[in-house]
Every structure is written in C-alpha cells, then in structure tokens.
Amino acid sequence: MREKTLRTVVAFHTTTDALAVETYCAAHGVPGRLIPLPTIISAGCGMCWSAPDAARSAVDEAVRSAGVDPAGVYQMLLS
C-alpha cells in the first residue's frame, strides 16, 4: 500500500459539483484530484476531491468560488 498522508477531502452531493470544483482547481492551480469517496465518510459511492492538507484554505476557496455547497469537508489520512 502507498504511504498515508494527511489530506483535505471534500465530499459532494453530485458528480456535477465535483466536476465544477475540479475545473476550478485545474484553472487556478489548486492541487488535488478526484478519488473514490472513502467509506469512512460515507458507505455510498461517489467521488471526492483529495488535496494535500496544506492546501486546505485554497481548496475551501475553490469550493466557494465554484458555487458548490459541499456535502462535507474532512481532514484524514489517506494513501
């Protein structure tokens, strides 16, 4: 397994919201990528934005600027 690091994880209500945040982050150099939703957040499926925890404030700003109401924002260890 890959080594776990502290990540900021944003969960979404819809895939469209996830893509809106991804698009904003790509355009503004905010680090991170879309990953499957960790089961510790929800047992359902879906995708979330995972970024280095150091980028937390930039990610929060990206979510706001993309006009997205997130399902949740978490800090957790992920591989």
Binding site: F12, H13, T14, T16, D17, S42, A43, C45, G46
Partner: peptide
C-alpha cells in the same frame, strides 16, 4: 442509480442528479 448517495432510499435532491 446515480453513482452518489447510494444508501439513500430516495433520489438525490440536487440537480441535475
């Protein structure tokens, strides 16, 4: 099926899903 909110017994409320 929507690929999100799998364990919800109702359709997600958010558009477009």
């Amino acid at each position: 099926g929507t690929g999100v909110q799998t364990y919800s017994v109702t359709q997600p409320e958010q558009y477009p899903t």
